[in-house]
Design a protein around this nucleic acid. Structure first.
Lengths: 314, 314
DNA sequence: GCTGAAGGATACTCTCGAGGTATGCAGTCG
DNA sequence: CGACTGCATACCTCGAGAGTATCCTTCAGC
């Protein structure tokens, strides 16, 4: 088809004339004069290939074809407006999709309130959750598959930017009837001397491995098992396999047959760390990869984080 | 908003670049060169108020906002194409709405097959039915409320154009047990001498009034009642009030307690009339008011009419 | 690490088309 | 029957868009 190309100006002109049913008034509304308006309508009719308006010296009437086309013209302008509006909202980070990484246990306290809050404050943002350990989250971020992660330090600071969003105490998890359950108050490293303990894989669960080692330093605990997941540690403790050190939120896992006991402060963390709440959760993202949407979501993460830190730690 | 106005060209350019992810190839596809294409995209981005594409020397990627906008751009072009297509179809009379007048009894044989045939041949045409006597149909056509009518002559030829679409015999309708039911063969005018007859209102049912008078001319029938509708005549006949002359299709009304008998030819009609089938139904429309849609519908009416005239007349 | 190539952006020119002014022409009303 | 209303046409002007040439940035490969 070699008919002259349609233009949006022609649609705007058509709509104006169709609504005014008068070229002069329509031209006035369009802040132009009547002759070019007439020409635009003629061009439009040639482009469409149908007479859209019946002109008489008494005014203008729409033909049935014109009425049909007017309906579509309205829809075109509507869709276009929506397109501009939506694109702006996405650009401003108020709409869109965000891929959010999290680790299973770390999420217990933060993720629920976060999703609720995101649904409230950024209702047009769709959150896609990706469960994974810190390492896979970092990889996801580097590959661009994740926008934000909720993970444990340390991170490669040259690629990953991070911010602490939760701190919680480290607890000991003991099988019911374990001798240490009789101790009153917080447990010290020396309390575990000779105790069979479940620790963590130094690579796959490096963070809790390091925490456990740091706490037990100078002690004489006996490592009988190395696991990768907090849940595994708690389950093994419940079977009497040994004692494990877990974050306070592990109490929410609801495993039966175990007792949680607080620990003495864990020293030896980084300068900003809180010895009473040594288990940190960080929000992480690609350094230099901030977008408006990520900024907004991160802000909500921090708000939720601030709200939680005032609440009881377990 | 004082942002520069969007144009369809910009959308077309944007779609091409978004699909090719390469300005050079997109320009080639658009049969233009790369620089003006770059400028169009820049203008579009200024108009939308968001960065839609991320340029690098390695090519182009869509931003989330761009992906969102692309979706809407597709919809805009789609709706626009549909608008053109639909307007053309309406203009060609293949789509649209047609207001069709008909009279109750006249429709019995024609209207059903007509609607079926219209649904087959012009599926996009919506038929709006308006029941009314000939007079009101003519008024509706003159006011533009009706496109076509199915009515009885005569019409004002200066305003209304018409074409015969059905002819049928005139029958006598008699109460069961009436003496004339014993007559074998067709009834002649003289057979009704002295018979109590139901005729029609000379204004409101002029056509059947005239037919009845023409048939009974030179006879000595006794008019005991004047009605406006065929159905009324048949019902009065069934109560023994008298004998009426009705179109053959009245047999399809299904009134109990009556007998239909054929009549001798009715002479004295217009030159084209068929004395054996003197009851005519005409399609009527505004003289000079032919549109493609009306032409198409009228053609279907004539096809259906031709199909029926080969079928049994009752 | 330097050089070349790829690819988008920019500068400048030209042309076509959109808009403005003046006027024509047809139908309607007093 | 003339004047008015209202859309169409003629002609002119100017700006937006397209083309050509060139620049700038980045990445690849030696």
């Amino acid at each position: 088809m070699q008919s002259p190309a349609l233009t949006l100006d022609q649609l705007r002109c058509f709509i104006a004339v169709a609504e005014e049913l008068h070229f002069g008034r329509a031209a006035e509304r369009l802040t132009m004069t009547q002759p070019p308006l007439s020409r635009q309508i003629q061009k439009l009719e040639r482009a469409v290939g149908a007479v859209l308006m019946e002109r008489s010296n008494r005014g203008v009437t729409l033909t049935p074809a014109g009425a049909e086309f007017l309906d579509h013209a309205y829809r075109v302008t509507k869709v276009l407006e929506q397109g501009v509006e939506h694109a702006r909202r996405v650009d401003a980070g108020m709409s869109g999709t965000i891929d959010l990484g999290f680790t299973a246990v770390s999420a217990i306290r933060l993720l629920g309130p976060l999703l609720i809050r995101l649904a409230e404050e950024l209702p047009e943002v769709e959150v896609v959750l990706h469960e994974g350990v810190t390492g896979s989250q970092v990889n996801g971020i580097r590959r661009g598959e994740l926008a934000l992660g909720l993970a444990r330090p340390p991170f490669d600071g040259s690629l990953i930017a991070s911010r602490v969003v939760a701190r919680e105490p480290l607890y000991a998890v003991l099988p019911v009837g374990h001798p240490l359950t009789a101790v009153s108050g917080a447990l010290a490293p020396q309390d575990f001397d000779g105790t069979a303990m479940i620790s963590y894989h130094p690579d796959q669960a490096r963070y809790f491995h390091d925490l456990t080692v740091r706490f037990l330093v100078n002690g004489h605990a006996r490592i009988v098992q190395r696991v990768q997941q907090i849940l595994t540690a708690v389950l093994l403790a419940s079977t009497g396999e040994g004692v494990a050190l877990v974050p306070a939120s592990a109490t929410a896992l609801g495993v039966e047959g175990v007792v949680y006991k607080p620990l003495h402060d864990v020293e030896g963390g980084h300068p900003d760390s809180d010895p009473a709440r040594p288990v940190e959760l960080h929000a992480i993202w690609a350094r230099g990869g901030m977008t408006p949407l990520r900024r907004r979501v991160l802000r909500v993460v921090e708000e939720v984080s601030a709200g939680l830190s005032h609440a009881p730690t377990a």
